[in-house]
Write a protein that binds this DNA or RNA. Structure first.
Lengths: 300, 300
DNA sequence: CATAACACATAAAATCTCCTTATGCATAGT
DNA sequence: ACTATGCATAAGGAGATTTTATGTGTTATG
């Protein structure tokens, strides 16, 4: 590192001037004036301590020293150019998404294939993780998070509102002669009774109960497990109907009441740094995902 | 050429920051403030269109894109550094001298070896050519020229004054019974009677003659030939005694008169661009040559 | 747990670099 | 000789870069 380099701008100029054997031609290539080239070469020669060009009548030619370094400088610039071509390639064709598990398993997994087909030049990497991503410290283009959509500096699109309703297997419902009123559910085991949504839901249905407490933190990350347990007839789960549309259609789960409880504003959001909203790959994914959500909503 | 590079200064900063994994360390290495590094990286990331670093608590780490380009950028900078090490090497260890033939054959040739021995790290290239070198258009470090020392922008050291005196072989002198007075020379053939120095010399000796005219341009470039002819007894030549010290000592030539003619200020000069007077190799050669001239003068 | 230490971000102001304009000079070609 | 071409140079200014000063968040420490 001991070697301190000359002003880099003068190197770019040198590279062009050496290639052309002319300051005027170089200035044209670089989009600057001939005077600027001359000035830069003067700077560079002063810094290097030895002339790099011989000023001949209608051209300049490299000195011995100039001849030796010119090809090396050219090579170095080729490398730099190559690096940025690669960078653009990477940043255009590589989309990294971090998503909460629930959304990935219940929505994204079965649809992401269509995005790949639509944009086969973009390689998608899906990371599932719990915590809310901070884009300044994680190498991610997009995130899908649950919350209220109030985040600083990010663009957020609501995908699926966080609404909940009890669900159970038809067999289990049958076992107590069907579910007629909300309190019927209390005859059956509640899967994870500590889930705060239970209390919210029963409250909104006018059913009093001391059973339901615990903090109000979302347990959405493990909805899938609760759904599986419910399908297996092990009890009643409180789930987001949007994610179990298929199960309801198939009949492996039933939703006895249309009433849902929701926490206004909460839900699953697509988020990304505001500053990057116009980057093509981000636009493409956003448009695709919002369209998928739209289709999903219409399929009701 | 289609790829336009990001600001090069930001690349130098990136290279250092990537190497250190720290903006603060990089700023120390580069001798600037941490704020400047932060600013440059912001610029670069904006230009590339994608983050290059992830800001982690006590450090920064490269993103995927950053990781890809970092080694390439580093390599490019190594190349640039190598180029300038080489340039310095070339410019330090390669000394190119252009000299008039006379001085080379009569003075330099027999002494240059001692310079090589003294500075075996410097490769000397001797070019002999007639014309006065313009350092801005010839790839030369030093020149030895004849003239009056009045040149623009160059440092000039007088080496050997241009003084002349008739010389001839002892046998030829003997053939007319020895040379007693200047006019005796007129009994013998003058080698190149058109040489203007003849007229000057006879004039200064008080000998009138219509024979001598021609322009006053120095013929020094061909002195060697005239000397050879004189040694061979073909006539009388008017030569610079300093250059034929050996011949005089050996007795192959005699100088019948101590009187010389000289043109004040004219002579052989060491010249080089004023701006480059402090460059080591130039100082070394100058000091060596002036010392050799000194020794020569003392050996009278 | 509070506090100090550390690292990066940001805003405003001061520099300083670099470019352009305008011009001069030398050479080559007509 | 005269014109065109190409580089050098000076002056002036626009813009980039750096510094100073300060803020925020994190880790380490008592």
């Amino acid at each position: 590192m001991a070697v301190k380099l000359p002003p880099l701008s003068s190197l770019r100029v040198f590279e062009a001037a050496a290639r052309h054997g002319s300051f005027t031609r170089a200035s044209e290539e670089l989009g600057m004036t001939q005077a600027a080239v001359s000035y830069q070469m003067k700077i560079l020669e002063e810094r290097v301590g030895t002339p790099l060009f011989l000023r001949r009548p209608r051209q300049v030619v490299l000195t011995e020293t100039g001849q030796r370094i010119a090809p090396i400088i050219t090579e170095a610039f080729e490398l730099l150019r190559a690096a940025f071509v690669m960078a653009e390639d990477t940043s255009h064709n590589f989309l990294s998404i971090t998503t909460v598990t629930t959304f990935a398993t219940n929505f994204l997994a079965e649809r992401i294939g269509s995005f790949q087909i639509l944009h086969d030049d973009i390689a998608v990497r899906l990371d599932t993780s719990m915590s809310l991503v901070d884009f300044t410290r994680e190498d991610c283009d997009l995130g899908i998070r649950s919350g209220d959509g109030q985040w600083q500096g990010v663009e957020a699109h609501l995908l699926i509102p966080a609404i909940f309703s009890p669900m159970l297997s038809p067999d289990l419902a049958q076992s107590i002669g069907g579910i007629k009123k909300p309190s019927d559910l209390l005859k059956l085991p509640l899967i994870d009774a500590s889930d705060p949504w239970w209390k919210l839901w029963f409250d909104s249905m006018g059913v009093q109960s001391k059973e339901f407490h615990g903090n109000k933190r979302s347990r959405m990350g493990i909805q899938m497990l609760e759904a599986r347990a419910a399908e297996a007839g092990q009890g009643v789960a409180i789930l987001t109907p949007d994610f179990y549309r298929d199960a309801l259609r198939r009949g492996s789960l039933v939703q006895p009441f249309n009433e849902i409880c929701c926490d206004e504003g909460r839900g699953y959001w697509l988020v990304y740094p505001k500053a990057r909203r116009n980057i093509p790959k981000i636009k493409k994914f956003r448009d695709w995902l919002l369209n998928e959500v739209q289709k999903h909503a219409c399929s009701l």
